[in-house]
Design a protein around this nucleic acid. Structure first.
Lengths: 347, 347
DNA sequence: CCGAATTCAGTAAGCGCTTGCTATCGGTTG
DNA sequence: CAACCGATAGCAAGCGCTTACTGAATTCGG
């Protein structure tokens, strides 16, 4: 049906040279006489020739491809990391494959395999993982296999269980510490920790920071003030409502991430409670929506894009044979308007 | 350095069969004795064999890949389309390459070429384009080339200038008409049209809907009430401020998209004006942030994800030889809280 | 004016996988 | 009992491109 796609041989024939010469003229990595080059270029455009990346890759060139595996492309947390990856990939002349697991760990494994088959220079795994021994084992095996074959598995903001897996981390626990400490500094002593899945490293680290802040100020840790469930608006809403209905005594809430805070805001407002007059709140991640909230949300900034960029740099370094070590980026609290001193004489 | 990557030949040797048999056992599209299959599977895992997608593609298999070209991955408008594409791609067993142009038309062309080289089944171009004859010509040429080679260029929410380019559109003008009409129904006669780049089809269509609504109600069109500039929060903010400072007489604003509306909200609030008591507002796109605003934004819903899905279906149909026609989806107004009747005796 | 360096082009051997065709073998038929 | 058949397996020809090697001009130092 379609006219057979032009190959390098067709171009060569039309330009009266050998295919080797065409290849070299196209790659530009070998001297080719100007006259010859022009004839080749003419033939290329006359034929509408488009090189076949597959064939090129097969014949020994690197694929110049990185894969990124995230949960959700519309979730700003992942989107920003992806943007960093995409940016840096473009800068280093690579293509970027984006895969979304929608939270399914098996998908995660399947995508790693897929990207391995695609001979991606690196596959970047973003975000916390459920803490599951078996799954971690599967991941490790793939990390080893990838590395053995010249590729690289990179964890981005996820605990790294193996030397075969590179990592770009951020100071998750430290951010949580800072956030909690800020609340304490403002006079809060009863702080609700709201949201985040139970068995996920990201959650666990944030909770750890919260606890450490409490204890470093000699405040008691009250397990009742920890309401775990999930990241995200829905849980933020219901979780907040439940905390309120349970008659818990608290003057501030540390939301496990900004989305959770958004849900919590709504819940509070539906009960006629104001932020920060009645309840102070801090979030985590510093997604753009944090500034859309009224009052604007005080939250912990995570260098999402930069993490993505660093991951690709790691990949590039690895591909070039430099063995860069793991990377750890800082987080910091962004002060906005959702925190104030607790009301006197609460009740 | 690394142990040479195992090939199908290695597996074949270890399993005492020919590479053809291994290939067939792996593909599962040809009878292979159970015993043989098992030996092959054992060899595969013993060797840690991973098929080479490049070689497979070269040897005649389709690449099962779609490419999507968007401006910005963190912009919800694009992210939702991308999500639809990604979802449907996953369902049909395809890989999805995401490329971001950051608004540079040359990047757009470069990415089309890149994806063509990758032999993507389809390349999906999302969002309005600047209206530039020359650029449109370049795109058309690539659309033709792609189609000639068995691929397909698909425009998603962008005017389609050529029969070689497939399209998934949405009723952009109709949505704008509905939004404006809604404002008029609520008693507004002086409506500010705010935002959107000058020479972009998306902008133009929305403005056209605005004008048609006006004229269908016999209201005069006042060019002063049209403030074009760009999509996005920054312009929404400055544009709104300028309109206010110019002493323009209006009681409602139709923001070219939700981001613009977000900026406009902020500008209004910084001048002590309330929505909708002082000024009513409608947006366009219905991104999640529209519900984060207070009051929640009345806006036009665009079936972003569905557009992405449809685009991939179109691609799949094309790859299978069915020539599906272009697709056009509807839009509808989502009523929330940002519109009310204009204040009596304005001044 | 000669051997050596330099420039440019061609030959051909793969890269790893799929697949059309052929070959083998233990039954089936009529 | 011979012609056949279905189920399996192997052979070998590519898919389109890169890249050692080689070879032939051309240029250049001395």
């Amino acid at each position: 049906m379609q006219p057979r796609r032009a190959t390098i041989a067709d171009v060569a024939a039309r330009a009266n040279v050998s295919s080797a010469t065409v290849s070299r003229a196209l790659a530009g990595n070998y001297p080719v006489a100007k006259d010859t080059r022009e004839r080749i270029e003419a033939a290329v455009s006359a034929l509408g020739y488009v090189v076949n990346a597959q064939a090129r890759a097969l014949a020994g060139q690197a694929t110049r491809t990185v894969g990124i595996i995230i949960q959700e492309i519309v979730d700003p947390f992942y989107a920003f990391v992806a943007r960093g990856v995409e940016q840096e990939a473009a800068v280093t002349g690579r293509l970027c494959l984006v895969c979304c697991t929608h939270g399914d760990p098996r998908q995660e494994l399947a995508f790693i395999d897929l990207l391995h088959e695609q001979r991606a220079d690196a596959v970047i795994l973003v975000g916390g993982a459920i803490s599951d021994k078996r799954h971690a084992g599967e991941i490790m095996a793939r990390g080893a296999s990838l590395r053995q074959h010249g590729g690289l598995l990179i964890h981005c903001g996820r605990a790294t269980p193996s030397a075969d897996i590179a990592a770009v981390e951020y100071d998750n626990e430290g951010g949580a510490f800072a956030a909690t400490d800020h609340l304490i500094t403002n006079g809060h002593t009863r702080i609700l920790y709201l949201g985040g899945p139970r068995r996920m490293s990201t959650s666990a680290d944030r909770l750890a920071g919260y606890k450490r802040a409490l204890s470093s100020r000699n405040l008691p840790f009250d397990p009742d003030l920890v309401r775990l469930g999930a990241f995200g608006q829905p849980f933020g809403h219901t979780g907040m409502l439940e905390a309120l209905d349970a008659g818990l005594d608290f003057t501030a809430v540390f939301a496990a991430n900004d989305s959770t805070a958004i849900g919590a805001y709504a819940a509070l407002s539906s009960r006629g409670l104001r932020v920060p007059e009645d309840i102070s709140m801090v979030g985590y991640d510093d997604i753009p929506a944090a500034r859309l909230l009224k009052p604007e949300l005080t939250t912990v900034h995570v260098p999402l894009e930069e993490m993505g960029r660093q991951a690709v740099r790691l990949a590039a370094a690895h591909a070039d044979g430099y063995g860069g070590g793991d990377i750890r980026l800082g987080t910091h609290l962004v002060l906005r308007d959702s925190v104030s001193a607790p009301r006197r004489k609460k009740r």
